[in-house]
Amino acid sequence: MIKKWLRPFEEIAGNQRYMITGIWIILVIGYWVISSLGTKHLFPTPVQVAGGLRSLYNEGLVVHIVSSLLLCFKAAFISIIISLLIVYLSPIPLLKPIALFFSKLRFLPLTGITFYLSILVSNARQMQVWVLVIFMSLYFITSLLAVLKDIPEEEIDHARSLKCSRWEVLWEVVIKGRLDYALDVLRQNLAIIWMMLVTVESILVAAGGLGVLIKNSDKFANHGRIVALQIVILLIGLLLDWILQTLRKGLFRYSTF
């Protein structure tokens, strides 16, 4: 059995896969417990983390999570609409440079953008939303452009030969035919956004959110809390990822990638 586990490309049964995952989890947790046994340790002990989690909960962890999620959804919603519009119009030669320009802008540093935004937007919450929107959009546009580019010419030709006008080709092949890809682009880039969210939230403490909690914990150098928070953020991120993945597979039966 062990020999099979070590052979490249070997197909193994489902319960054995769970077993392997289980072994790894036990190893990691075991390492964590053992490494935090001594007096000097890098990681807080599981007990400290549990304590951190409890104190976070008492400070309204759930409210902060909801606040973060709302910010994330709001920004994602605005930005996916803007990006889809820009990208879906990019097959029009006149409008193509717009999409390419925004895609290149993703190399701009965050600080520069926040500076200009703070001149334009006075409300700090608005500012958070727009910083996220701008960043998300740049990544969305880049990924969506790649999806468009990967559409085989035969698919376009197939639609053309069925008497589709060019606008119909755009609608059928690019927009309707690649909706599942758009959802997957959202999923893939959500990780970047979820990570950035924490940073952006610390711009404005009053608005709350997970970023604020991290910042506060940082101040007190409370490792138990920081690790607890990080685990929470990681799990929520994974949950979002899983939801979007399941949504895509559920909505689009033909989406098998």
Partner: peptide, 17 residues
Amino acid sequence: REGDVGFVNQKYTLFRH
């Protein structure tokens, strides 16, 4: 012009959706 003549290509391309 495109659309005047029906075409079935070698790879049997269809609408994937």
